[in-house]
Amino acid sequence: MGRMRIDSPQGPLVVPEAVLALADGDTIEGVWRNEAGGLTFRLGERFVKWAPSGSGLDLAAEAPRLGWAGRFARVPRVLGQGAEAAGQWLLTAALPGGMAVLDEWKREPATAVRAIGRGLRALHEALPVEDCPFDWSTGTRLARARRGSGPADWHPEHRHLGTAERALALLADPPPVDRLVVCHGDACAPNTLIGPDGEFAGHVDLGALGLADRWADLAVATWSTNWNYGPGWELPLLAAYGVEPDPVRTAYYRLLWDLT
Rank of each mutant, 00 (worst) to 15 (best):
G230V: 11
G119Y: 04
V243T: 08
H158A: 14
W105D: 11
R144V: 12
A208M: 05
G82S: 05
L13Q: 04
I28M: 06
R144A: 12
W32K: 07
P236C: 00
G67E: 15
P245V: 04
R166D: 01
E45G: 04
M4R: 15
P245L: 10
L57N: 09
G87Q: 10
N191E: 02
T250H: 08
A221P: 09
P9G: 07
W32P: 00
W154L: 08
R144S: 11
D197K: 07
P174Y: 09
G207Q: 15
M1G: 14
G67T: 14
P231Q: 05
G30I: 13
A63Q: 14
H124A: 00
R121N: 01
L91I: 08
T140M: 05
C132T: 02
G54T: 08
G207V: 03
A189Y: 06
A251S: 09
E84S: 12
V14Y: 05
T163E: 13
G97E: 10
N34H: 15
L102K: 00
E234Q: 15
P236E: 00
I116D: 02
P9Y: 08
L180R: 13
S224K: 10
W89K: 12
A83N: 07
E84A: 13
G150K: 10
E29H: 15
L95Y: 01
A152Y: 07
R3C: 00
C132N: 03
G202Y: 14
D246W: 08
E130W: 06
L209E: 03
G98K: 13
E108Y: 01
G11R: 12
G162K: 07
Q81G: 07
R121S: 01
L90A: 02
G82N: 11
G11E: 03
V220H: 01
T140D: 01
D258F: 10
W223A: 13
G37K: 06
R46L: 11
R141L: 15
G232S: 09
G25S: 07
G80Q: 00
A94Y: 05
G56W: 10
S8K: 09
G37R: 11
G198P: 13
G30E: 06
A21V: 07
S224R: 05
G98I: 15
V182G: 09
V31A: 03
A152I: 04
D246V: 06
R5D: 02
S224D: 11
G210K: 08
T250Q: 07
A83C: 13
W215V: 11
R249E: 04
G38C: 13
W223K: 00
A172C: 08
H158I: 12
L120S: 02
T40M: 15
T163C: 10
A23P: 12
T222I: 04
A36W: 02
A83M: 10
A251Y: 00
S53Y: 00
H124Q: 02
T40I: 15
D213G: 06
W68Y: 04
L127T: 09
P245G: 02
V182M: 12
